[in-house]
Amino acid sequence: MAGPALEPSPIEGAARAEAVLGRLQLLVTRKLDGLLQGDYVGLLPGPGSEAGESREYRPGDDVRRMDWPVTARTTLPHVRRTVADRELETWMAIDLSASLDFGTAHWLKRDLVIAAATAMAHLTVRGGNRIGAVVGTGPGVPEKGRRRNAQPDTPPVHRLPARPGRKEAQGLLRAIARTQVRPGRADLGELIDMLNRPPRRRGVAVVISDFLAPVEGWERPLRKLGVRHDVLAIEVVDPRELELPDVGVLALADPETGELHEVQTSDAKLRQRYAEAAAEQRGTIARTLRAAGAAHLRLRTDTDWLLDMVRFVAAQRHARTRGTTR
């Protein structure tokens, strides 16, 4: 839901995209590296599978990592540390439906999508790995409804190939930030399924969306994706999607259909029903993501998204290395 707004010109949209991207990259570079210090262990931190150096066994270490040759030579129990696989390929599915062009707090939801993509790219390329993306937006205005001499729209879904290097990652993020958000909703199921085609070796798949599309449309492709890849689902939320403020009559416009609605927010029962419906919707999304085996990170436009991301990565690292000492 969102109020009416003037559509920015392509030049204004590109300038804003560059400004937002520059600000986000500065935040990520300055803060993320400092808060996530330590050895590089992959985008979704885990023990890895490549052999590393050995050290003495400590209580709580995983006995499956015992280094028997070193133990035999030294007569002291040793375990072998592991490092993350190199040349990891990460693909992002970026949902830029019209519902993402909305925000009532510090950021637009669209900005958070770009923020999440920026952080993922930063964490990926610092290990010398490849990152690519598929970007989807709404179908846009039908051709017969366009203004005469209007520039043709970009396709509703387009693929940005995976390449290594910071310069290439910068270009990928710039292409995402400059994507024109068009009316309508992207087919999230199709967007996710594009990460399954063509088949690739095991890697990381990141889906960034508000997941407001019907669950039935994207649940199965997400389950399929999780069979072969480590999946991270980043859900973007605005507080007004969870509860309504008491501000009297509120005029709302659906950014995907253009329909207008007037809501009497002073009605306490209506606000309660809205909050209950929103909670049920978000609960269904969370359960579906969990059932698909995806790691789930929720970013809100009214909180410190960078801190939320750091806490998530730290929690993932702790969960995946539980029982070992790093």
Rank of each mutant, 00 (worst) to 15 (best):
I114D: 02
G34S: 02
A51Y: 06
W107F: 15
I131S: 01
G145N: 00
S54F: 03
L88Q: 12
L35E: 13
Y57R: 04
P69G: 12
P59Y: 03
T90P: 00
L88S: 02
G128K: 07
A115I: 09
L21G: 12
G60C: 04
V134Q: 13
F102L: 06
G48H: 00
L24C: 12
P142I: 05
W68S: 12
A105T: 01
R130F: 10
V28P: 09
L76Q: 15
E56A: 15
D61N: 03
E50L: 13
G34E: 08
D61G: 00
A93T: 10
A84C: 00
R148M: 13
A14F: 10
Q25Y: 11
M92V: 08
L24S: 11
M92K: 01
G145V: 01
F102N: 11
P45F: 07
T29Q: 14
L21N: 06
W91K: 00
R64C: 03
M120V: 15
V63D: 03
R130A: 08
T29G: 09
S97V: 10
P77R: 11
A51C: 09
P139R: 01
S54Y: 02
H78I: 09
L24I: 10
G138D: 07
T118Q: 10
R126Y: 08
L108T: 04
D153S: 10
L44E: 00
A19S: 12
G48I: 01
A17T: 00
G34F: 12
